[in-house]
Design a binder for these strands. Structure first.
Length: 463
RNA sequence: GGCUGAGUGGCAGAGUGGUUAUGCAGCGGUUUGCAAAACCGUGUACCUCGGUUCAAUUCCGGGCUCAGCCUCCA
């Protein structure tokens, strides 16, 4: 039985889908005004893993991850860059897709953009006004009336009195209550706008997600996810908007992934301590980043550092090393024993670190098989690869992975050049000229290329 | 100040009321022309103080420290 930690209940809940055999999941995606950083990568990879595991478990999954393509930051950035909003957002959507492809993140089933759902957004706001959960301010902004929803604060564990007491945002006179939040912003000169019953304007951020999730998945769906920082106010506001407009329940389970940290501090744009995905890809293979992300639990903080990525690289290389020689011929099914154990790990709130430890055990069992052509070796290989697939790992050819160049590679040799050195060394070895053979090996080693003499011949890898 | 969550061996990171996590690094061995890779062996780890218990790192309470949210943020 799959258990998922539900931010709403603050405990691991048994997962019972609304419709048997199906899962509907909405995740708050990116606001596209800059390159994705490792924190964004974590959201993409974590929920990709969740979707993959659901599919592996036999569910029919509908995974929606939205794109916020209209927002204050986008407007500001476009103005700074002196480019159109569409040019800016298109550029960063393309960049985001490159990053997510590199990280082995499968495309969600749907990636709605806010600007293409204005009619749903306006309709939802109208409903909220009709039901007296929202009001139009003197400035023609539309606000949600927080006092009209009694469960406000349930998700974030806050109560409205405390929120008012701790109010740190400057009070806007148009609001009835400082906690009220904007649903529709009246257009300011030079800003993009859409027509609405309250005049030209654009939607607030929170309503976009309510409208798009409802449009894509219906009023009531299984899982809503996103980064921990969205729990309040974004997700709290989404619940208020959706429940008040539809009169139905919203998401059953709320999943929040932990932050990526740098030096014990949250990685964020505002702190300026972020590393973009493409920046890190200069130095590490994409799968190393994915492995790094999955090697800690999705709710734990994840400390970004070169040392930790290097460790992830070593660990992942170990798994690939075990896959090098064994064949997978004549075996179709992964070994049930390992699959069951793997499922038990993942059923416990997606415990990927524990699942990965099982992968290491499989690799060790595989390495113990001296006969690489044995049926057992083939079974273990198939199982390791299969379980890797569920996590989006170990899909590369082992030699390709182990020989890949990276920023830290110091050689500029191609495969032919390396093979020539190896041939030369093999010849020296057969002539028992070990001094020369060692010289060649040391030379390659100094360039970051390691040789291994195996029964199948000499093979190489980049460190 | 309010509300969350966390403190595990050199590092990373799971987990558990009494028994080996796992990985990286280290050390010893097997193997190898020598290496590498691999395998085997190797660590008196659970912030602190009380409490519950036959037994607590694990449960409860206090304290200390750290992080996050309360403002845009994945």
């Amino acid at each position: 039985m799959l258990k998922i930690y539900n931010s709403l209940s603050r405990k691991k809940d048994n997962f019972t889908p609304i419709e048997a055999g199906k899962v509907s999941m909405y995740v708050c995606g990116m606001t596209v005004y800059d390159f994705c950083h490792i924190g964004h990568a974590r959201v993409m990879v974590v929920f990709d893993m969740v979707a993959r595991y659901f599919r592996h478990s036999g569910f029919e999954v509908t995974y929606v991850r939205n794109i916020t393509d209209i927002d204050d930051k986008i407007i500001t950035r476009a103005r700074e860059n002196n480019e159109s909003i569409t040019d800016l957002t298109e550029r960063f959507i393309a960049a985001m897709n490159e990053d997510s492809d590199a990280l082995g993140v499968l495309s969600p089933d749907s990636e709605p953009k806010a600007t293409l759902h204005m009619s749903q957004i306006i309709e939802m706001i109208s409903t909220l006004i009709d039901k007296q959960h929202a009001y139009v301010g003197n400035n023609n902004d539309v606000y949600f009336d927080v006092s009209s929803y009694e469960n406000y604060g349930r998700l974030s564990g806050k109560n409205t009195d405390e929120l008012r007491a701790g109010e740190r945002v400057e009070v806007q006179l148009e609001k009835h209550d400082p906690l009220d939040f904007v649903l529709w912003k009246a257009a300011k000169p030079g800003e993009p706008s859409w027509p609405s019953p309250w005049g030209d304007g654009r939607p607030g951020w929170h309503i976009e997600c309510s409208a798009m999730s409802t449009y894509c998945l219906g009023n009531h769906f299984d899982i809503h996810g996103g980064g921990q920082d969205l729990q309040f106010p974004h997700h709290e506001n989404e619940i208020a908007q959706s429940v008040c407009s539809t009169g139905e329940e919203f998401a059953n389970i709320w999943m929040h992934n932990g932050f990526v940290r740098v030096d014990e501090e949250k990685m964020s744009k505002s702190l300026g301590n972020f590393f973009t995905v493409r920046e890190v890809l200069q130095k590490f293979q994409p799968e190393v980043i994915r492995f790094f992300i999955l090697s800690s639990h999705y709710r734990s903080p994840l400390n970004y550092s070169i040392t930790n990525l290097e460790e992830a690289k070593s660990a992942l290389s170990g798994l690939y090393t075990s896959l090098r020689h064994a064949s997978s011929n004549a075996v179709d099914e992964p070994l049930k024993k390992y699959v069951d154990e793997f499922n038990a790990c993942m059923d416990d709130d997606f415990n990927t670190p524990k699942a990965i430890s099982l992968l290491h055990e499989l690799a060790r069992d595989l390495n113990k098989n001296s006969d690489k052509s044995s049926k057992e070796a083939a079974e273990l290989t198939v199982t390791l690869r299969y379980l890797g697939t569920v996590l989006g790992l170990l899909q590369d050819d082992p030699q390709t992975f182990l020989q890949a160049k990276s920023d830290s590679s110091t050689d500029d040799l191609d495969e032919v050049a390396i093979q020539n050195f190896i041939d030369e060394r093999v010849a020296a070895k057969s002539a028992k000229d070990y001094e020369k053979a060692d010289q060649i090996r040391d030379h390659l080693q100094s360039l970051g290329i390691s040789l291994e003499d195996t029964p199948q011949g000499t093979i190489w890898r980049r460190n």
